[in-house]
Amino acid sequence: MVRDFSKLMLRAFNAEADNLVRSLKPYKLDAAVERLRKVASTIERLGRSMDIRVSTQYLRIRIDELTLTADFLHKQAEEKEADRAERERLKEERKAQQELERERERLEKERAHYANALAALEAKGDLEAVARIRDQLADVDRALSDVDYRAANIRAGYVYVISNIGSFGEAMVKVGMTRRLDPRDRIRELSDASVPFNFDVHALFFSKDAVGIEGQMHARLSERRVNAVNRRREFFRVTPLEAKMHLSELAGELLEFEDIPEALEFRQSLSQVPAPIVLATSQSASLATQ
Rank of each mutant, 00 (worst) to 15 (best):
M1N: 14
S6I: 10
A12E: 14
N14H: 11
A17K: 13
L20K: 10
L24I: 09
D30I: 00
D30L: 07
R35P: 07
R37Q: 14
V39E: 15
S41F: 10
R48M: 12
R53I: 04
L59R: 01
L59D: 02
L59I: 05
I61W: 08
I63W: 10
D64R: 12
L68G: 04
L68C: 02
F72M: 09
F72D: 03
L73Y: 01
H74A: 11
E79T: 13
K80W: 09
K80P: 06
A85F: 09
A85E: 13
E88F: 04
R89S: 08
R89H: 14
R94A: 08
K95S: 09
E99K: 01
R104P: 02
E108I: 06
E110F: 00
R111Y: 11
A115T: 15
N116Q: 13
E122K: 15
G125A: 09
L127I: 01
L127V: 12
A129D: 06
A138L: 05
D141A: 14
R142K: 15
R142W: 03
L144S: 02
S145W: 06
I154D: 08
A156L: 05
V159W: 04
V161G: 01
V161L: 00
I165F: 02
I165W: 08
G166N: 08
F168P: 09
F168Q: 06
F168M: 01
K174C: 13
T178W: 07
L181I: 14
R184K: 11
D185F: 07
D185C: 00
P196T: 08
N198G: 00
F199I: 00
F199T: 03
A203D: 03
F206T: 04
D209G: 03
D209W: 01
A210P: 02
G212E: 12
M217P: 05
M217V: 05
N227P: 01
A228Y: 06
R232M: 09
T239Q: 06
T239K: 04
E249H: 06
E249F: 10
L250I: 12
L250Y: 08
A251M: 07
A251R: 03
E253N: 05
E256P: 00
E258S: 12
E262K: 12
L264F: 04
S269R: 14
L270E: 13
S271R: 14
Q272H: 10
P274E: 01
L287H: 06
Q290D: 10
